[in-house]
Amino acid sequence: MALQSKRRKLKPLDNFTSFLFVLPAVLGILLFTLLPMVSSLYYSFTEYNTMVSASPQKWVGLANYKAIFTTEWPKVGHALGVTALYSLITIPLYMIIGFALALPLFREARGVRVFRTLVYLPVLIPMIISGYLWNDLTQSYGHINQLLVAVGLKPYAFFTSNDTAMTAFILMGLFTVGGNIVLWVAQMKAIPDSMFEAAKLEGARYPTLLLRIIIPMCTPMIFYNLVLSVVNSLQTYASAIVVRTHLNADALDFYVGQVYSKIVEMSDLGLGSAMSWLLFAIIAIIAGVTFKFNKWVYYEEEM
């Protein structure tokens, strides 16, 4: 009895010391997530150019948002179009290719481990270097055009023209699909062998296994991958900065690039913040819709 009351007295202190362990994360969220979100939301309703003065010049209400859809629209709309085009093509493309390449790689067999490693290697090329590498590979004198000419094809313009730059950029991104393959393989490996054995006893052939077992069992990964690729591809920018030149500036005009130049290069935090919030809203809506329609995802156990 005495012990119990003693423990009860200690409780508030105990509670507090336990909380101290997670204090870094709590402060981190307040300082580096909540505070910047609130302040940038506030700045998005102001005129704020850091070249003029260190604090916002004046409250302008919705003027920045209005400007996005009126005076700035030719540029913003174009960038949104480029970003949307890139996302619409690459999300299904990278997913299907990643999935297809994971299929022969998920069962342990001789050499499979080596193949998995080799396919992953290009992911280790740093982003900045990959830009220079692909810039060099795709020049008229570059190795890819040498090979195209060698097999009797015409050289391709790749990054040197607005018409072909997007294709080249998508091709460049294809080489980092290894990161995706690792995830698919892990998901496929989690499928119990007994399922395949039972299906084989019933006389099922490979297409049936694929459609009735592998794909349904991979739906959690399809969903995870879908959400992740939507968020990532809408924020594409850094991987394009090296390969984007005056020759293809229109074709690789990604939305984040415009926000970056507004904020960092032009010091226009008012309009820049509004533009970043527009992207935030677009991502939130698309991700939200994806979550809403996830009835097709199979979960082994309820979380």
Partner: peptide, 17 residues
């Protein structure tokens, strides 16, 4: 769930200040 690059863009003004 927060989009990372969006957050980086929004952090800029704070780091600037």
């Amino acid at each position: 769930m927060l989009p990372a690059v969006c957050m980086q863009l929004q952090l800029y003004s704070q780091y600037f200040n």
